[in-house]
Write a protein that binds this DNA or RNA. Structure first.
Lengths: 113, 113
DNA sequence: CTTCATAGGTAGTAAGGCTACCGATGTGGG
DNA sequence: CCCACATCGGTAGCCTTACTACCTATGAAG
């Protein structure tokens, strides 16, 4: 998939992987890759600036630690980040259902039965 | 909805409304508005440049006509536009299912069984 | 010692959509 | 008659976003 098609949803993806626990940048990339089945193979030049953006926005916090002599910056969601994620989810649903109406795909309610 | 969230799918939406028949710019805006239930209220500054982009790309053709003294530029899909729409649909499905995997919404396969 | 995986980062670019404008005509209200 | 509004088209400049292409450093493997 053309990763640039992510347009505006990168933040949501990052927040969603961090929802499962704090991770450092490199691990986030791996997580995205594996969870997407290899479809999302995002370069560091995409991830790191995005994380800094999220940090600036207060959605994540970072902490340095040294593991095996390697510096790691571990990111974790803030309360604001959790809220942002919820918002992103909502707007994704909206976008998805709106666009789906035109492109023939709809997002049927997950039927929480 | 924040319309800027459309990012990259505007073309697909335009192509899809034109799929139902040729329309002029203003009518396209109205069509998007009504089909989306009012969610998509796109300004002319978004639509017209997009249409020109599509025309430059050969996906639509335009024709001028005068109705009630008003100039209308009517756009219609070309063969290339139909193909492009199919492609857009496919990549939308891919994006939608990939992002959905992270944001909790999935686009369940239409079960072509 | 070189190469690879791990780990973090920056600079510059290109695309896309938005806001804010502008021009014109026909219709209807005051 | 004149003004406002809906219809119809369009452009200019801006901002955000993600990408490509780079750079740095360490530990392990060969």
């Amino acid at each position: 998939m053309k990763s640039q098609a992510l347009h505006g949803h990168l933040d949501a993806l990052l927040l969603s992987v961090l929802e499962g626990g704090a991770l450092h940048g490199y691990a986030i990339i791996e997580a995205l890759k594996s969870r997407s089945g290899g479809t999302l193979n995002l370069p560091t030049g995409t991830i790191y600036p995005a994380l800094r953006r999220l940090e600036r926005a207060g959605h994540v916090e970072s902490e340095w630690s040294t593991v095996n002599g390697r510096e790691r910056r571990t990111y974790r969601l803030t309360a604001s980040g959790h809220r942002a994620l919820a918002g992103e989810r909502a707007s994704w649903q909206e976008l998805s259902s709106t666009v789906g109406r035109f492109l023939g795909t709809d997002t049927p309610p997950p039927a929480t039965t």
